[in-house]
Design a protein around this nucleic acid. Structure first.
Lengths: 201, 201
DNA sequence: ATTTGGATTAACCATTTGGTTAAACTAAAT
DNA sequence: ATTTAGTTTAACCAAATGGTTAATCCAAAT
């Protein structure tokens, strides 16, 4: 059932936890949002921690789907960068709370997602992408930059402006809509910056 | 007095709040860390909120000192970028919890630092730096990129790898020391990336 | 020696919070 | 009609938490 109590709780928990985090969220608030009795949360999910971990795992998975898909695709790196930046920024514009949520909870408990990481075998994907990347370097098609640094650059330029939105909005005094436009502008700008630096012609 | 109760509380509060945030911190824990009775926190700082705001304002100021100093300096932009990246990354390596703390609490309450921002007149500094920047563009010395986008790139590349350390460490499987080295490597890499893109020769 | 005023403490309080439980409800199976 | 098993609810509980207060301490001023 799409509107079973369990589903309603899941969705309510996702909504509340993503915005307020573990410490900031209240079981009662989630129950209210779901429109069910508070005891139902414990009935279906045993504890606040278990409820949180369920939401965290699901959201954490989403964050990596995009990266994995694009990095393993077999198109030229120029296209790969463009595709990555576009899909990543589109995804983030629709779920802007996601990165702060992940980083926050990972900082509190770094081992939170070790199992999940293994289950989606991020390690393998990382290594495969790295191998492809290094092949291109040896072929003289990419600049000789450590893969991890390239990944940091890529993710930094996409994610940080979403993360730091409230800070950046205040210091640059732009409206919500203007900020949204700035992010859309970035799709082309970030691709251009990375490609001009990475691709050897 | 450097070790007056008030000072001890301040320092303990900074230490605890920076790591655990407002919701995650307990007054008792701060009191223990400071080695004073819990009632002293309310005696000197009225409430948890007031104590938090004091710490937040001070830390927030620190984050901008560097940016302001470097951006308003009158050296060539190539040097400016190098100086910015170096001092910023050095600062962040010593206080890695700072950006997450700021972004976190700003997301919860975007109006938290409006007054502080005015008191250090971030708006003015931003406009002055922007004017200088646009002058260089008109002189054909810098690429024609909106100032805010340049600032986003600069800050993203410096801050995000510090913010996302726990996530990046897990997916790339590097140790603490290796991560520290990666960040040190970035000082040159980030400067090079930005300079090669921005500076027109 | 006494007074004075800030600093410090232990005890206390009201509220919030995550979690439990026993009873009640419901719908399907017998 | 009765049983059964899962679902839902209200009431309850213990622990934690931010904050208050009255009493005490202490050093400097009188």
């Amino acid at each position: 059932m799409l509107d079973s109590a369990e589903q309603k709780i899941k969705e309510a928990a996702r909504k509340i936890l993503l915005v307020k985090g573990f410490d900031g969220s209240r079981m009662q608030e989630i129950a209210d949002e779901a429109g069910v009795n508070k005891a139902m949360l414990n009935y279906y999910f045993r504890s606040k921690k278990a409820l949180f971990q369920m939401v965290f795992m699901e959201e954490f998975g989403k964050l990596f789907e995009n990266m994995i898909t694009v990095l393993l695709d077999d198109c030229p790196w120029e296209d790969k960068i463009k595709a990555f930046v576009n899909t990543e920024l589109n995804h983030l514009l629709q779920a802007p709370q996601l990165p702060l949520f992940i980083i926050n909870e990972m900082s509190k408990n770094p081992h939170l997602m070790e199992e999940k990481l293994k289950s989606i075998s991020v390690g393998n994907v990382f290594e495969m992408a790295k191998t492809k990347y290094e092949k291109e370097i040896q072929d003289g098609k990419l600049r000789n930059l450590p893969f991890i640094q390239f990944l940091m650059n890529l993710q930094s330029l996409c994610i940080f402006p979403i993360l730091a939105k409230p800070v950046l909005m205040q210091i640059s005094k732009v409206s919500d809509m203007e900020y949204h436009n700035l992010i859309n502008q970035r799709k082309a700008l970030v691709s251009e910056l990375l490609i001009s630096y990475m691709i050897i012609k």
